[in-house]
Structure formats: C-alpha cells, structure tokens
Design a protein around this nucleic acid. Sequence first.
DNA 1: GGCACGATAGGCT
DNA 2: GCCTATCGTGCCC
Length: 203
Amino acid sequence: MKTLGREFYNRDSLIVAKELLGKVLVHEIEGQRISAKIVETEAYMGVEDKAAHSYGGKRTPRVEVMYGGPGFSYVFMIYGMYYCFNIVTREEGTPQAVLIRAAEPIEGLELMAQNRFHKAYNQLSKSQIKGLTNGPGKLCRALLIDKGLNGEDLCGLKLYVGAGENEPLSIISAKRIGIDYAGEAKDFCWRFYIEDNHYVSVK
DNA sequence: GGCACGATAGGCT
DNA sequence: GCCTATCGTGCCC
C-alpha cells in the first residue's frame, strides 16, 4: 500500500482532514502490524482558532511539534489518562493539525482486543468491538500510540498513513467535540466523518 | 438508550 | 491550583 508523502500534509488543514477519511493509519510494532481505516477527523486551525492548543501563537514544549514541518505526529495526554493522536499540517511556522477521532480496525484485531480489554477478539461483546477504536483516546490505546510517538515522522516506517482503497465516500461536516471553552469557534463545522460508519464516535 | 459523575496526571498560570 | 481536543460505570428510564 502506498504511503502518503510529505506534500499530502502540506495543505489547507480542512482539506487534509477531509482527505484523511478512508486512509489507513498503520503502526508497525515488534514485527507486527496494527492498522485501521480513519473514519472521523477534526481540523485545528492554529493561531486564529480558539480551540487549538496553538491559539494566539502559544508556543510551549508541548505544542512545539506543531510549529515544525508537516507530516509529523502530535500526541498529547488528556484528562490524565488518555492520549490524542494528531497529524501536523501546513508548512513550518504555521501550527495547525488534524486530530484523528475514530477509525475502523483492519489488521491486528487480536492486538487491539488485548490492548483495550485484555481479552481475545472472539471473546468481545458487540459493544466492545465497536468500542475498540471509536474515539480518540480509545484508538490510541488500541494502536499503542502514546507520548513516546510524539514528533514521529509519518513519512517513516513505524507510524504512517497508507492510501487505502480510494473508494467514493459520503462525508459529513459537524461541530467539533469537547471544546465548549472556545467561544464562537466551538460552532465551526471542522469535524468530518464518513456517513453511516459504525465506528464514528459522535453522529 | 441517555445522563451524571469521577478518575487521574501533565501542562501551564 | 486550575484546567483539560476522554472514557467507563452506575443509574434511570
């Protein structure tokens, strides 16, 4: 499967967020592969976006990777127990990113089941199967993405995004989740998801 | 099915 | 000392 190159990410973050839908997030770990189709994303538009960690040009060690070039991971801890995985977009100096909110498991189902529930895949209930990767914290658990992968180059061999099937998709735009503090920006429809997909976190 | 609530720790003021 | 780009559980329909 072809891997997305640097220039894919060096574009308008809203376009990247939409075009990431249907692509395949892959984590190669200890000779095994875990992969999942991206079904829900959110764009964070940087210095002018009150919901973005880089709003107003805020520049701290945590957000530093967003100020670098496109195609790197931005992983942060949230609520003390979960991670969120983002992909940095735009050229160096423009701190924008796309949050990956949900995905549909493809390869490594047994690993995902262990990582999430410490059970074999065929022992999972229906709701556990759906819960494997239908949220930003959940998919990080399932794919073993943590702060050790912050700043990882997605044009490498460990963590990357494959082109997938290139199937036609029906894309829904909606308000982003969990940003009530962000003033008028909380109502911007910068969340995108594949219509009718089972693994979307919020419909 | 939906809603309320608590867990938990790093990041920043 | 406060806040957070979340999730699981318990409870009540």
